[in-house]
Structure formats: structure tokens, C-alpha cells
């Protein structure tokens, strides 16, 4: 095989206090992905280079980072798609633990604030109630593809640039709430939470999240916009508002 010149891989080395980009020269193998390059550097040049990874098959969402400035899964980024220089940095929306590893625990706290799937009392024990057609589940299925890599959270400017984790759950959890809202058997009204602490109103539809999703979930089009509509219909539709007032609600 013709020899290929080695890859110049720059990786952020440091922690919450700060750090620097360090460049490693990595031999290139056919079909190599950026995660392979990082792991090669780890095994051969920098044994303490911290990176999260599990499946190396784009199914677990552990190896999210920024490759040449773009939020990517390292295991799904072929080296051949880039030039001879690649830079890898940790996700910017979360505090750095070490090197490419960030503290994503905030996401787990948010998830806990979303009420779980709740079927109605009547449905719960009635086997007939669970007959559903493929078209009924299709909408929820798209959202359930999410592998929780948090790249959408990383790129969301409400979280990344404005630091409003206090006001908005972020695209991942809009997807989560959409998967529950659009589950044929979920019985909860999630609109009050969407309007309130989940902050669906903060999204101004730049669709950056949708662009970086490795599962190609149409986050903005199919999750956030419909959720905004449901919320607006309930709270900001003048006719409904009038009816509500007349009905004494």
C-alpha cells in the first residue's frame, strides 16, 4: 500500500483550569476514524489522554467532541474526510473534566425533572388498549433514536453562548418531551412544563441542533416546532383564552 503521510492530530490537553492544544503525529490506516487516531495517540504517545468512548459504532453517543470546530461523534468521523491536520476539542457547552471529557451531569438532572411515561389508569391494565398501528408510533420512533450524545446541547446557542441552562432544557430534552407528547399512550399534559421551566420559547429555530444530530433526528422541525405550537395553542390562542375565561378555568 502506498504510504500516507502521518496525520497531525491536535488535541486539547487540560482541565477546568485551562490547557493547551498538543499535536501528535499519528500513522493513518485505511478507514480510520478520528476516535481511532485519538486512541492510537493514547496507547502510544499520551497514556493519560482522557476521552470517553464505549461502542465505537455510533450507537452509544459517548465520544462527542468538536472536530475542527464542528460538534461530531469521534467514532463517526472518518479521518479521510479531513485534511492532514485535525484538531479535537471537548464540547464547549459543558465544563471540562479533563482533556476531551466534559461534565455532562446537568443533562441527567434535567432528565429527572421530566415526568416519566404515564399511561392512563384505564389503559394500564387493559391489554386491548395497547393495540397501536405503525403510523401511530412512527412519530415517537424518530425521537426515540436519540443516543444522548448531547451534541445538540453543545451547539444550542441558548446553552452554549448565553449560558441559560437555568431557563431552557435544550434540544435533547425537547426531543425527550416530544417522544412522550407523541407517544400514543402517554396521558400527561406536558404543556405547562414546556412553557415554564423547560423554556421551549427560548428556542428561536436556528436549526443548528438538527444539523449536528448524528441520528438525523429533525429536532427543530419535528420536535421543537410542534411543541411550540402545542404550547402556544394552549396559552396564546386568543379564542381559547376567551373560552377559558368564560369557562372559569
Amino acid at each position: 500500500m502506498a504510504s500516507v503521510s502521518p496525520l497531525q492530530l491536535s488535541v486539547f490537553r487540560g482541565d477546568a483550569e485551562g490547557g493547551e492544544m498538543v499535536t501528535y503525529s499519528v500513522p493513518v490506516r485505511e478507514g480510520m476514524v478520528v476516535l481511532d487516531a485519538v486512541l492510537w495517540a493514547q496507547a502510544n504517545l499520551a497514556p493519560d489522554l482522557a476521552v470517553r468512548w464505549n461502542c465505537k459504532a455510533a450507537k452509544c453517543g459517548s465520544c462527542a467532541a468538536e472536530v475542527n470546530g464542528f460538534p461530531r461523534l469521534l467514532c463517526k468521523s472518518p479521518v479521510a474526510d479531513y485534511g492532514e491536520e485535525i484538531s479535537v476539542r471537548p464540547m464547549a457547552a459543558f465544563p471540562v473534566v479533563r482533556d476531551l471529557v466534559t461534565d455532562v451531569s446537568w443533562n441527567y438532572e434535567v432528565n429527572q425533572r421530566i415526568a416519566p411515561f404515564t399511561p392512563s389508569e384505564a389503559d394500564r391494565d387493559d391489554p386491548r388498549a395497547w393495540r397501536m398501528q405503525q403510523v401511530d408510533v412512527e412519530r415517537a420512533i424518530e425521537f426515540r433514536k436519540c443516543i444522548e450524545c448531547f451534541l445538540c446541547q453543545d451547539v444550542c446557542h441558548v446553552l452554549r453562548n448565553h449560558g441559560r441552562k437555568d431557563a431552557y432544557f435544550g434540544p435533547r430534552f425537547m426531543v425527550r418531551m416530544a417522544s412522550l407528547e407523541m407517544h400514543p399512550k402517554d396521558s400527561l399534559d406536558r404543556r405547562p412544563q414546556l412553557k415554564g421551566e423547560a423554556g421551549v420559547g427560548y428556542c428561536n429555530i436556528t436549526k443548528c441542533c438538527q444539523e449536528v444530530c448524528p441520528e438525523h433526528i429533525h429536532i427543530t422541525d419535528n420536535a421543537i416546532i410542534p411543541l411550540k405550537e402545542r404550547m402556544a395553542d394552549e396559552y396564546f390562542d386568543p379564542v381559547r383564552s376567551l373560552l377559558r375565561r368564560l369557562g372559569g378555568r
Binding site: 464505549n54 461502542c55 452509544c60 455532562v104 443516543i147
Partner: peptide, 11 residues
């Protein structure tokens, strides 16, 4: 050993 939800079962 990993983050919640990343275990090998996802594969």
C-alpha cells in the same frame, strides 16, 4: 463504569 445509558446493551 460509564455514563448511564451507554452500557453495551445499547448495541
Amino acid at each position: 463504569k460509564s455514563l448511564l445509558g451507554k452500557a453495551h446493551t445499547v448495541m
